[in-house]
């Protein structure tokens, strides 16, 4: 098995990895870059715990081979906050109590982020659709949906609500 060299942008930084070609994007993020916010749940695209944003769109990083991200831009949960402060979505999840065990949270936030990138004022149905590929077994989703609404509202107000 020959290694592959892949150049891509990870959380705003240009990166080059030389890895085994059978590695998934999820494995590279976690094992090569030690960015362990992105979780593995089912490994089959059913749970969304491994969701990252690839060129502006939410994808399951467990179903993407590393060669497929050549030249592309990946954002993980670690790439959302800036200069030590949380992204509005992260602070809204805390404020709304949308986190229980926390395992689904990074993937849930990345799916919500991909929605807010293209729609600053989503309806409840649009939020439900955007997170329909993310399973949460604790919260019952209500507080997650409220958190996304809160983040959208705070972003529209331009307020720093919840940011530290």
């Amino acid at each position: 098995m020959n290694s592959v060299m892949v150049d891509f942008t990870l959380n705003g930084e240009p990166r080059t990895v030389t890895v085994k070609p059978n590695m998934t994007l999820l494995e590279v993020i976690r094992d090569e870059f030690a960015l362990t916010g992105t979780k593995e749940g089912c490994g089959q695209g059913e749970c969304g715990a491994c969701t990252v944003i690839l060129d502006g769109k939410a994808v399951d990083s467990c179903l993407i081979l590393i060669s497929q991200v050549q030249g592309r831009t990946v954002t993980t949960i670690e790439g959302l906050g800036k200069d030590g402060s949380l992204d509005l979505l992260q602070s809204s999840f805390i404020e709304a109590g949308a986190v229980q065990c926390g395992y689904c949270t990074p993937g849930m936030i990345m799916s919500a982020k991909s929605l807010l990138l293209k729609n600053s004022n989503p309806s409840v149905d649009e939020i439900k659709r955007a997170i329909s590929g993310n399973l949460c077994r604790c919260t019952g989703y209500t507080k997650i949906i409220k958190a996304v609404q809160l983040a959208a509202m705070n972003a529209r107000d331009g307020s720093a609500g919840g940011e530290k």
Partner: peptide, 8 residues
């Protein structure tokens, strides 16, 4: 599938 699957 899901949004993630449809995007890939």
């Amino acid at each position: 599938g899901s949004p993630q699957i449809r995007n890939t």
